[in-house]
Design a protein around this nucleic acid. Sequence first.
DNA 1: GTTTTGACGGTCT
DNA 2: TAGACCGCCAAAA
Length: 111
Amino acid sequence: MENSYFNKVFRVTEAIPFGKVTNYGAIADFLALGSARMVGWALNKCDHMSIPAHRVVNRNGELSGRNQFPNPTIMQEMLEQEGLTIIEHKIQNFKNHLWVPSEHLSIEDYE
DNA sequence: GTTTTGACGGTCT
DNA sequence: TAGACCGCCAAAA
């Protein structure tokens, strides 16, 4: 089990429950990466088809990473499939569906 | 070895 | 309230 930040981001992303979303900053802060950019970079380098990366958006609730998917609309489709409402690539009631890793997971479990 | 860029966030002006 | 700047770490050119 590798403990690289790359793998950490992977595991946290997989831990996001159905119908919930989180932002890069929350993951970065939870893993103490120091920068939300690392999260986005890791997900981009990773195989986004193997993890629910569509549940990770920026702090504004915008699907900033949709462009990296095979189809720019697949991200919205999947989120809507989970009961979320997406308008103009932005999650409505984002805060209501926000899932913060640090409030449900333990950093000690990922170090 | 140096420079640029990246699925971002927070702070300052 | 909105726009601009800086920081953060790593990878590829």
